[in-house]
Design a binder for these strands. Structure first.
Length: 275
DNA sequence: ATGGTGGCCTGGACGC
DNA sequence: TGCGTCCAGGCCACCA
């Protein structure tokens, strides 16, 4: 579910809720969520304290003491929330981190797609999944020159190219539709065919839109909530995603939904023509 | 190396 | 009401 703005919002909430808490024990109800040996996962975490929570792309990174980190990906519907020991365990809760103060951090995931794994803190950056991530979508990390060079070599459509996390990290189906609408690019345009102006507009839209969505606390379409179980607000600012049949806010043409690379794709057939 | 497909899971919306 | 079908915010293994 969550894309960069939602993961960042979860991170900020979790920092407020569980930073400096010490794990008393870990209960694993659905082991497939954990990459690697479940017993080692449990034994390693017991007695450790959460010192910091970071993010890279859509990955959450929990830093513990003892040079241990946990890399966690929520995929489509993963959520973290806090409960009190003894509270009824809800239906889709798969992992429970019980703290020494009686609070619990619970990982809940209806579709069981999420994954987490332990790694030495100094080896986090070497993880295969993190190594292939492109730059963070910020002014300081995301260079328009590098972006243009990579796009020139891509022979696939721009939508799947942006969903691939190695061009730039953090975009998912919602925000790809949004940044393409914003920069007036048709989602089926072959990436290498984009003009310099289009690339610059796209680059700018990626940085601006994701930052705006972080400020709004992310987008809640169906199930996403932050660590406090609140919805985001960015759905009210969407221009393309989920607006099938509604008028384009620029030109009034009805937003159309098609399938691109097996993903539902929303765009304005007038503003976003293939060049 | 690159680009395209199926699979992982469950539940909600919709049509009959 | 009940059943079947389709769809869903992501990623990886695998194929040509």
């Amino acid at each position: 579910m969550p894309e960069l703005p939602e993961v960042e919002t979860v991170r900020q909430g979790l920092r407020q809720l569980v930073l400096n808490k010490k794990i008393r024990n870990v209960i694993v109800l659905y082991p497939k969520i954990i990459n690697g040996d479940t017993n080692i996962f449990i034994e390693t975490l017991e007695g450790l304290t959460i010192k910091e929570i970071k993010r890279r792309g859509k990955y959450l990174i929990f830093n513990f003491n003892e040079d241990i980190s946990m890399v966690s990906h929520l995929r489509m519907e993963g959520k973290y929330f806090v409960r009190q020991a003894g509270d009824e365990v809800e239906k889709h809760t798969h992992i429970i981190f019980e703290f020494t103060d009686g609070k619990q951090l619970r990982y809940n995931d209806v579709r069981k797609f999420g994954r987490m794994e332990l790694v030495k803190t100094d080896k986090v950056a070497d993880l295969k999944c993190l190594k292939k991530l492109g730059p963070e979508p910020t002014k300081s990390d995301f260079s328009v020159e590098d972006f243009a060079d990579k796009l020139k070599k891509k022979n696939k459509m721009i939508k799947p190219a942006l969903l691939d996390q190695n061009l730039v990290a953090g975009l998912g189906n919602i925000y790809v539709d949004e940044v393409l609408w914003m920069s007036k690019i048709n989602p089926e345009t072959i990436a290498s065919h984009l003009s310099k102006n289009e690339i610059e507009a796209l680059h700018d839209a990626i940085i601006t839109e994701l930052a705006k969505a972080v400020k709004a606390g992310g987008t809640t379409i169906r199930s996403y909530t932050n660590a406090f179980e609140n919805s985001g607000l960015f759905q009210f600012e969407l221009n393309a995603y989920g607006r099938t049949g509604e008028p384009c806010r620029r030109c009034g043409t009805l937003i159309k939904k098609i399938v691109v690379a097996q993903r539902g794709t929303h765009y304005c057939p007038s503003c976003q023509k293939v060049e």
